[in-house]
Write a protein that binds this DNA or RNA. Sequence first.
DNA 1: ATTTTCCGGAGACGGTGTATCGCAACAGTA
DNA 2: TACTGTTGCGATACACCGTCTCCGGAAAAT
Lengths: 230, 230
Amino acid sequence: MTVWDRPEPPTRPAPLDRERIVAAAIALADEGGLEAVSLRKVAARLDAGPMRLYGYISTKEELFDLMVDEVHAEILPEEEPGDWREALHVLAHRTRQAALRHEWLADLLGGRPALGPNALAVTEATLAALDGVADLDTVMRAVETVSAYFTGAIRREIAHLRAERATGLSEREWQRASGPHVMRMLATGRFPALAKVVHDGTDVDAEASFATGLDWVLDAVAAKLARPPA
Amino acid sequence: MTVWDRPEPPTRPAPLDRERIVAAAIALADEGGLEAVSLRKVAARLDAGPMRLYGYISTKEELFDLMVDEVHAEILPEEEPGDWREALHVLAHRTRQAALRHEWLADLLGGRPALGPNALAVTEATLAALDGVADLDTVMRAVETVSAYFTGAIRREIAHLRAERATGLSEREWQRASGPHVMRMLATGRFPALAKVVHDGTDVDAEASFATGLDWVLDAVAAKLARPPA
DNA sequence: ATTTTCCGGAGACGGTGTATCGCAACAGTA
DNA sequence: TACTGTTGCGATACACCGTCTCCGGAAAAT
């Protein structure tokens, strides 16, 4: 049995780790949305069989959890905030930016408790910035209220963005020109207030409206922090 | 060919309509979550083949849209609100109640623009209640900010509820006793602020915290409505 | 009564997440 | 060096999914 007879040994499988798996999944999701992420396709990107992944994750949901946590690394601000308000402001905007980079994040945001190390680090940084400005319960209420706002706002923004992209029109144009269903509804006269909005409303910049709503909520929080709960 | 030779004609298929289809889908989702809704199972509930549904909907996503709109019929308040604040308050709470009855709503809320007749009616009622209290842009900002808040808050509440149900423990107990991962993280000392919260925080009633956050946001809106934008 | 139209449903296709299990490559031992 | 034990990869399999195609038979039209 000379060398010439022996086939070259099969290239050892490329080493795997969660990091590479998550990176592949995120790449897939960035390109084709969450539904483009299948264990088979993720594995294929890594020149592996689908079952190989089950050594690193035990369910597809866990993969999603890892993806969400990975993005939280992008969300974590790199420098200390000046005060609590800046901290919450920056957190909201960085989350939004991350969602614009990774639109699938909108589908996952708030869908499950985020307990990965990066998500915990983000929470820690936020709580640290609010430490001492009020009693614990008030601080929690503040953080949760603000995150509820930006979670919901981001979800809606991405949903509208997708709808626009699907029709190729801005939403208001679409409502007016290409949304025959909505137009028919408005034409019935059963929705006068809505009709006024569609007719007279101005298209507002998504980021501006996000920022404005956020400021309102932050104002509300400021008011509560100033005067501790009755 | 006597009667005896001829088989009885097959019972004509039960008549279908979207209402019955959506009702079956909602029942399925109420029992087993969104993932329990498959076109095959919905059709089976109606003694029909899966393909029959395609006469009424052309995609599974459309079925979800119909389900969401159907629930909006439960959300629409039956009586006129006293003022704008009550309108938004009631809208938020009714949406939350609907999500508690139909937990799958949390997975869909905000995921796509809601343009069905019932959703439009809800929007119309809300806008009508705010008509005239400020200029159109401010009104829109108010509605969107409040809905962003309660959308996000509902999603988080349902997510926590599911997590608790999955472990059989309240979240704080779970973090303390049965969430070894989180406990190990806290033990590292890298999350002092978070540790304080887990250690000292009190379990708060979900509804109360929802209501409190909502009141804060409504206070903020009130402040902006009083003083039109600079 | 005959033809035409139409629609429900059987089957197929290409995918999915996951369980099972045999095999082959390594590590450790005699 | 020969053997053995363990580990973990990956082929195969299963049950199910959303959706397409197409055929048979009932209803409607002639």
